[in-house]
Amino acid sequence: MAINNLKNEDNPALQNLRFDYLDHLESESIHIFREVAGQFERPALLFSGGKDSIVLVHLALKAFRPGKFPFPLLHIDTGHNFQEALDFRDEFASSIGEKLIVRKVADTIKEKKLTELKGKFASRNALQTFTLLDTIEEFKFDACIGGARRDEEKARAKERIFSVRDEFGQWDPKLQRPELWNTYNGRIHKGENVRVFPISNWTELDIWNYISRNNIELPSIYFAHEREVLEYEGQLVATSEFVQIDESDKVSVKKVRYRTVGDMTCTAAVASNAANVEDIIKEIIATKTSERGETRIDDKVSEAAMEDRKKGGYF
């Protein structure tokens, strides 16, 4: 009898072929990383020091060690990042001996005389697209690997793992290539590039379970700490030089942690006592608000906010 007709549980020879869901996700992501290495001349891995991109780097280590990464790490620094994440970014990149390229939105603003948003939470989220596109051009990157997940947002739910962008970085949901089996078509014309999302099929909880299983280190802001925050429409925003504080604002010191680490202007903290990964996992299982809803101030603005940004070249 062919072994493949047996259930794993019934067959002692197959007992050690157990492969759980995190193993599946990990193997799929490694496969995607190696497809990038095999198909592109000049890829880059977008690395911010946030948890998703840290997991990406760990997956890349598994995909390419004992060799070097066939791409540099790239950070588009908005200038509004958390210092803890930046420090972590630098230390981690040097500890694994991989090249890190940093490009600053502030430089693009100066060079191109871009207009910055004004207001309470003046965000550079939109402006970072300019810097990203300039950097892609500077290094002639043909693939940018990012840590977006499909569970984050409705428009993401439809994006391919290999997502082709035109010269202006634009995404056209109607012209996506069908993506079948585990075959990825990364062929592009000169000037175009592909955004690749190796952890498309992971959820927030999967990420945390993976971090826990692999003892992955994270920047301290992911764990509960005391921080001065202002309350704004039910969300907690860290006070910083980038956020305009009005007299009517309620500012207080609270025990908080971050679920995502974006710009200080558009990332909110959550009240939490979770001091370690296990506590965080418990909180996530119990929580009733999605990662994006709880912590992204910019998404609430419009139903179609993300879709519009992606069409315009956003990651």
Partner: peptide, 18 residues
């Protein structure tokens, strides 16, 4: 998912849910 679909009230592509 996408606005185009919402406007037309139809689903136009494969969407992934978890």
């Amino acid at each position: 998912g996408l606005r185009a679909e919402r406007e037309q009230g139809i689903t136009i592509d494969v969407a992934y849910k978890y």
